[in-house]
Design a binder for these strands. Structure first.
Length: 324
DNA sequence: GAGGCGTGGGT
DNA sequence: TACCCAAGCCT
């Protein structure tokens, strides 16, 4: 394993994404933030659109913990999986409340303590421990999972087995470089579609290299289609929006929707949006209200300052186009 | 443990 | 185009 560790470190020095900003900081807060933003999200998106603006607005745990959730969601707008922002904020609040007087709030360094915080699961706890606190532990995310499945020719990813292997394989002397290298190898060489096995430092020991597509086997689910009817409630050139409750798009503002069409309204078009688990078609109608029937009305300019989801942005744009 | 949870990149 | 997939977590 020592020679493999050497190969991996050598590969990382030459080909790794060593310039990523969260790899060149000692601040656990910014490393934690990057880990949460990167959950189910590509590096490019986080790097180019969200990481720096978020830190500009909330430069510390304390700044984040003392900010209103609405402001945090506005910074998160468009990134998706909004529970991440809610949990990030919640954890910052907890840490800020727990801090001793006169001291800055800090993240715990122990995996057991990290994993109890909202929004920090097993992988993120390990990532923060390895990257922020240089502990000799492995990470286990999509890239590492795919690499290990291929090295051991496992069609099914057995989480317990994978963690055991990962703990045995981690370079305990250079956990930071090892883990970053594993993710880079997965992202740039051991890719899902067309892996470049000949350039891979694991090539000599990989049992799955002759049929990499087979490891791991992918599971796919059917994607149902749902239809909603959006009644744009217009009063005094303002539109009614409500703050979404429940788990879907929680905390964001949005146009009220119904499952069934309502009568006596002008149809102005439809909007579609693809989510992970369903496709949504929204039939949009305009209703000129004679009196206020909803709690909150906003001008289009005011709506731009609220945190709204992508589908509501599409609906707003449809409305503005229909006014031309 | 299986399904809910967003959006955009890549092919 | 219509997929697949991405530094997962929570229930």
């Amino acid at each position: 394993m020592r020679s493999v560790h050497r190969k991996i470190r050598h590969w990382y020095t030459r080909h790794g994404r060593t310039d990523l900003p969260w790899r060149n900081t000692a601040d656990p807060y910014t490393i934690w933030l990057s880990e949460v933003m990167l959950q189910q999200t590509q590096v490019k998106t986080v790097l180019e659109r969200y990481y720096f603006p978020f830190l500009e607005k909330f430069p510390s745990i304390e700044a984040l913990g003392k900010a209103p959730l609405d402001a945090v969601l506005k910074q998160w707008e468009g990134l998706g999986y909004y529970t991440r922002a809610k949990n990030l904020h919640k954890t910052a609040q907890l840490l800020t409340q727990e801090q001793a007087p006169g001291t800055a709030p800090v993240l715990p360094s122990a995996i057991d303590a990290l994993i109890q915080l909202p929004g920090i699961g097993k992988n993120t706890a390990h990532a923060v421990a390895a990257f922020a606190f240089r502990q000799p532990v492995p990470v286990m995310e999509a890239n590492v999972r795919r690499i290990l499945c291929r090295i051991y020719a496992m069609e099914q990813a057995d989480e317990k087995m994978l963690w055991k292997i990962a703990y045995e394989m981690v370079d305990r002397e250079h956990p930071f470089e090892y883990n970053q290298a594993m993710m880079d190898i997965g992202a740039t060489l051991c890719t899902p579609k067309t892996p470049q096995c000949t350039a891979c430092p694991f090539e000599s020991i990989c049992q799955g290299k002759h049929d990499p597509q087979r490891y791991p086997t992918k599971k796919r689910r059917a994607v149902p289609t749902r239809e909603q009817h959006i009644m744009l409630n217009l009063y005094d050139n303002k539109l009614a929006l409500t703050k979404r409750e429940g788990k879907f798009l929680h905390g964001l503002w949005g146009f009220p929707a119904t499952e069934v069409p309502l009568c006596a309204a002008e149809y102005i078009g439809e909007v579609t949006h693809a989510y992970t688990h369903f496709k949504l078609t929204c039939k949009v109608y305009l209703y000129d209200a004679l009196e206020k029937t909803e709690d909150h009305y906003f001008t289009p300019q005011q709506i731009r300052r609220l945190a709204i989801s992508k589908v509501d942005e599409k609906i707003l744009n449809l409305y503005l186009d229909s006014m031309k």
